[in-house]
Amino acid sequence: MTTRVGVITFPGTLDDRDAATAIALGGGEAVPLWHKDKDLNGVDAIVLPGGFSYGDYLRAGALASVSPIMDAVVDSAKEGMPVLGICNGFQMLCETGLLPGALTRNENLNFICRPELITITNTKTSWTNFFQPNTELLIPIKNGEGCYQISDEGLKNLEAKGLVVARYNNNPNGSKNDIAAICNEAGNVVGIMPHPEHAVDGLVGAGVDGLGFFWSIAGVTV
């Protein structure tokens, strides 16, 4: 059975098309979902794609996190459905409380778009189980508010429980402990600031290092 992965489009979502392409390249089936939907159409997993939902107004991800579909996303995530929030999707996951912490303005205050090296530090999540521990990946970042912030206590908890999924090799935005991606304790919900969906086709992206995230969710079957 092909894994059906829902890709939710909010007003202002931009990378939904890229996420769908990446899911298909990874062996899954992308199922478009609309933010005003109330149910998840029976999908097996969810991607909250990048972009500027609601123009990033108020706080990035804040207005999208109260969209009608998010109740179902939160409920399903708590029951174990794999959810990947990329960039703006990561911001939404923090706003809903599914993941701890918050994303704030980059240290240099500018939007930054460039490939960055990250290292995978947790290979037990639903979205990273196809990687070897400590694999280095080249994945584009593109964000203005990608600086991961969390209380000291929260940070200790993340580190103690191994919930940091990826770290930047050269921290581009001031994120605490170089954090590029985190997960919840169950490992089904992952938020990542870099864009693995922009690293699945060398002709039009930054290499193919992002494919592993999508293999992880779809499995590789012959």
Binding site: Y54, Y57, L58
Partner: peptide, 9 residues
């Protein structure tokens, strides 16, 4: 624009 979007929600 921000206020307008918030009001819309």
């Amino acid at each position: 624009p921000q206020g307008r979007a918030i009001q819309g929600v």
